[in-house]
Computed example of a mutant assay.
Amino acid sequence: MGAFVIGQMQIHNRDWMAEYFDKIPDVVAAHGGRFLVRGGNPSSLEGVGALPDAAFILQFPDRASAETFWASDAFQTLAALRRTGSELNAILVDALP
């Protein structure tokens, strides 16, 4: 069964972005994943919480692939870079059968 990583990001500075966004697609692909949404233009449909500056959805063939991606040294190195200028909320969910 497929799995999705869904994230919302608040960006505090953009110093990290060029390197991160240059490298992240290859790291995602190396684990069988692909971007369905990247960045976007978030707008509110319902709710009162603050909108993120950016959002993403990653699709993986299964939960194990998504978890392996997230724990990988390559991703964690990029995540440390990303954390220098942003905050991320991310969740992992299973696809419908």
Score class of each variant (00 low, 15 high):
49 G>A: 15
45 L>K: 13
72 S>F: 01
33 G>N: 03
85 G>C: 03
19 E>Y: 10
47 G>W: 06
17 M>V: 09
60 F>V: 01
44 S>E: 14
57 I>T: 14
8 Q>G: 12
87 E>G: 07
38 R>Q: 09
4 F>T: 08
83 R>I: 04
52 P>E: 12
36 L>M: 10
37 V>N: 10
8 Q>H: 13
16 W>G: 07
28 V>N: 00
48 V>G: 14
51 L>D: 00
36 L>G: 09
26 D>A: 01
64 A>R: 07
7 G>D: 03
45 L>G: 14
77 T>K: 09
53 D>G: 07
69 F>H: 02
56 F>L: 14
30 A>H: 03
74 A>G: 06
89 N>S: 09
11 I>N: 06
14 R>Q: 11
79 A>L: 09
13 N>I: 11
14 R>T: 13
67 E>Y: 03
56 F>C: 04
55 A>M: 15
28 V>E: 02
72 S>K: 00
10 Q>C: 02
40 G>P: 10
71 A>D: 15
70 W>D: 07
60 F>E: 03
95 A>K: 10
83 R>E: 04
40 G>D: 10
45 L>V: 15
97 P>W: 08
63 R>T: 06
90 A>I: 10
42 P>Y: 12
94 D>G: 07
49 G>F: 12
1 M>V: 13
55 A>V: 15
74 A>E: 00
5 V>I: 11
82 R>K: 13
68 T>P: 07
88 L>H: 03
85 G>T: 06
7 G>C: 06
24 I>A: 00
48 V>N: 12
44 S>G: 15
5 V>A: 15
97 P>K: 08
61 P>C: 05
71 A>S: 14
50 A>M: 09
66 A>F: 04
11 I>R: 08
61 P>Y: 05
70 W>Q: 06
21 F>D: 15
62 D>Q: 02
24 I>M: 07
67 E>Q: 07
94 D>K: 07
69 F>G: 00
89 N>T: 12
88 L>A: 05
6 I>Y: 15
10 Q>T: 11
93 V>A: 11
30 A>V: 03
5 V>T: 12
53 D>Q: 02
51 L>K: 02
73 D>K: 15
21 F>N: 15
67 E>P: 01
48 V>S: 14
64 A>G: 00
46 E>Q: 12
71 A>H: 14
21 F>M: 12
25 P>D: 02
74 A>Y: 00
52 P>K: 09
41 N>R: 09
49 G>M: 13
88 L>V: 14
33 G>E: 08
47 G>L: 08
14 R>N: 13
68 T>S: 14
35 F>W: 04
57 I>H: 13
62 D>H: 03
81 L>E: 02
31 H>T: 06
